[in-house]
Simulated scan of single mutants.
Amino acid sequence: MTQVSLVDSGRLSALLREALSWNDKISSIMVSAQNGSILAYAFRQHTPSVKAMRTRSTTVTTAYAVAQQDTLVFEAQRTGALTVISAIGDQILLAVTGPEPQDVDPYEKTVHEAVADGEADTAGEDSGAANPEVTRMRSELEAVDQELAEMLRSELAGMRWPEDI
């Protein structure tokens, strides 16, 4: 009989918690299925409510689906936190998020005001080009994302999925 391995969310979460120690600027790491299901997560501070995590997972998976890129970097409109998203397997995404900037009032502008003022991110533009701190944060997040993605891909490669049976 063929063996079927399922994602061990405990092991996956332990790997994510360990990865938080790689860089003190990482605020959270989440692995989600492209349907928005949360497979594993690790947060540096308090763990948000299930509703908040589901919202974050849905936002991440929707942004990735719309962008259709191998790696996506986006800035949250309300908080200003950067997130790097990459695929680590078929239908499985990794999201590495940095801290919210301390000097930004998250309610200063609405999304519509930012779009009207031409400040919203558009595909292909580097929103951090004018701000060296944002550029540095983006580089750090991308480095952690790349290293963790490679580790998680090798973990997932050894598993057998139901369609392999």
Rank of each mutant, 00 (worst) to 15 (best):
Y41G: 03
D70M: 04
Q102P: 01
T55P: 03
T47W: 06
V115L: 08
Y64K: 01
V104M: 04
N23D: 15
E119G: 08
Q34G: 12
Y41V: 03
I92C: 04
Y107N: 14
P101E: 05
P48F: 06
A42S: 12
W22L: 15
A67T: 12
A67L: 12
D24E: 11
A67I: 08
A87G: 03
A65T: 06
E119W: 09
Q69S: 10
A95K: 08
S28Q: 11
A63P: 00
H112I: 09
D70T: 10
V60R: 00
V31W: 13
D117F: 01
K51C: 00
L20H: 03
G36T: 11
G36N: 12
A63N: 07
S49I: 01
T79A: 01
I92L: 11
L94P: 05
Q34V: 06
S57Q: 06
S27K: 13
G36P: 13
V84C: 07
G118R: 13
Q91V: 01
H46K: 15
Q102T: 09
A95R: 06
Q34Y: 07
S127I: 12
Q102E: 09
V60M: 09
E75N: 04
Y64P: 00
S21C: 02
A42R: 11
I88S: 02
I26D: 04
N23I: 01
E125I: 09
G36M: 15
A33L: 07
T122D: 00
T122L: 04
D70Q: 11
A120C: 03
H46S: 15
D103R: 01
G118S: 15
E119K: 15
E125A: 09
L39W: 10
M30D: 05
K51A: 13
A52S: 11
N23C: 07
K51G: 00
Q77S: 10
M53E: 12
D70G: 12
E100N: 10
L82G: 01
Y41L: 03
T55L: 15
T83R: 00
Q34M: 10
R56P: 02
V111T: 14
T83K: 01
T59H: 03
T97N: 10
G98C: 07
V73A: 06
G98E: 09
V111M: 10
L94Q: 06
T62K: 11
R78M: 06
A52V: 12
A52C: 01
G80S: 04
R44Q: 15
T62C: 03
T62N: 11
I26K: 06
Q91A: 09
R56I: 11
S32T: 15
S57T: 05
Y41R: 10
G89F: 08
P99M: 02
P106F: 00
P106N: 02
Q45A: 11
Y107M: 14
T47V: 15
T71N: 02
P101L: 03
A87W: 03
S21I: 07
Q102M: 08
P101N: 05
L20A: 06
L93N: 13
P101S: 04
A116Y: 05
K51E: 14
P99A: 03
